[in-house]
Simulated assay, not measured.
Amino acid sequence: MNLFSNSISTLERAIGQSVTKQKVISNNIANVDTPNYKAQEVRFQNTLNGEIDRLHAFKTNEKHIEFSGTTRGYQIKTSNQTAYQQNGNSVDIDKEMTEMAKNQIQYNALIDRLSSKFNSLKTVIKGGN
């Protein structure tokens, strides 16, 4: 039995992904001066594709964008291509701080949305009072 709606479980997964991204970004920032440390990033494209697959959506007009996706989950990728410092470190602190700020805004929005869902449930349980 599913006690909560699919939107609540989707929000829960999105919050978990945001937490994962925050951990990876924090790890990169913590290692900004570590010699030969290679920055990591979280890629959620597979999760996005999986959620699109679950929509069972279809185009109603040929000008609409295709709904497609194949797999679920996320990947943590290590960047081996560049070194921003002479010690071989690939952490770009400006990029990491920007990503952290964007992630924090997304996390706050998700928490706010989840909170409003639970407030709605609370209102229903109380009988609208």
Rank of each mutant, 00 (worst) to 15 (best):
N2L: 13
N2V: 04
S5N: 11
S5A: 15
S7M: 13
I8P: 08
S9I: 15
S9Q: 14
S9Y: 15
R13I: 01
A14W: 03
Q17A: 00
Q17L: 10
T20M: 11
Q22E: 10
Q22C: 07
V24M: 08
V24K: 04
N36W: 01
Y37E: 01
E41M: 08
E41K: 07
E41T: 03
R43C: 05
R43F: 13
T47F: 15
K59I: 02
N61H: 08
K63Y: 06
H64F: 12
S68L: 15
T70L: 10
T70M: 06
T71Y: 12
R72S: 12
I76A: 02
K77P: 00
K77M: 00
S79T: 04
N80Y: 14
T82V: 14
Q86M: 08
Q86K: 09
Q86W: 06
V91D: 07
I93Q: 01
M97K: 13
M97C: 04
M100H: 02
M100L: 14
N103H: 12
N103L: 03
Q106G: 05
Q106L: 13
Q106S: 12
L110F: 15
R113H: 12
S116F: 09
S116W: 11
N119S: 10
S120I: 14
L121R: 03
G127Y: 02
N129V: 11
N129S: 06
